[in-house]
Nucleic acid binder design. Sequence first.
DNA 1: GACTATAACTTGCAATCCACAAGTCGGACG
DNA 2: CGTCCGACTTGTGGATTGCAAGTTATAGTC
Lengths: 118, 118
Amino acid sequence: MDNKLMFERSQCPITNGLDIFGDKWTLLIIRDLVLGKRRYQELISSPENIASNILAHRLKRLEVAGLVTRRAYQQKPERYEYVLTEKGKDLKPVLEAISRWGTKHYPGTSVFRAVGQG
Amino acid sequence: MDNKLMFERSQCPITNGLDIFGDKWTLLIIRDLVLGKRRYQELISSPENIASNILAHRLKRLEVAGLVTRRAYQQKPERYEYVLTEKGKDLKPVLEAISRWGTKHYPGTSVFRAVGQG
DNA sequence: GACTATAACTTGCAATCCACAAGTCGGACG
DNA sequence: CGTCCGACTTGTGGATTGCAAGTTATAGTC
């Protein structure tokens, strides 16, 4: 019943995707999660230097949208990690397509393993 | 020699892509251009209701980045249209991937022809 | 037992960006 | 002379972003 933010701007699937990940940071977080990162500090330490408040905000949005799951990996003190759901993992082809476009038009760029040339 | 905005945040091709189209509107403009729209009013009249100042700003950025070309289609009065370069057209697979993700996870959405299921 | 470190955040604030409405400019048309 | 069209530009208030610093809970060290 959390479908009240669906079809916010239009019924276009691209629009609905962009309403979730249409910004400078979200797809980079997904990229890191696809690459196997799970913890807050790992995400923070990516070379793009995301601010901690932005990261927290994006992770919350991704959780609400059902792309990631937040869960405790230890108690005392409670520490949390983030993992992609199937819906989140399904963005891998999108990352691959962007990566292919980027490496073609900006030679010299490179991602790490797993999100390379598909 | 306009390569001073390359590698702004990192050498990741995804990051460099997002520095150009990482927002809520740019990929929708590209979608419209892929679908054959060319004129300002056509772009304005899309269902997502982009504001005119945002559209102007994004078109300028796309032109600077080399994804679209602005050219006059008539004189007296001068009127301009926008067409995708090869670099811009190369984003079609990205749009298709997003579209596929959107239609899978938000059933009921649909784009127009040409940017459908690939 | 105070002191430092770690991890996952939260808070405050200035700067920037965005959305909405309105206005501009150069003609064509009546 | 006045209205319309099309491609923008300008002004304003509100939302978002970026940066630095702070908070909370616990473990380890002196």
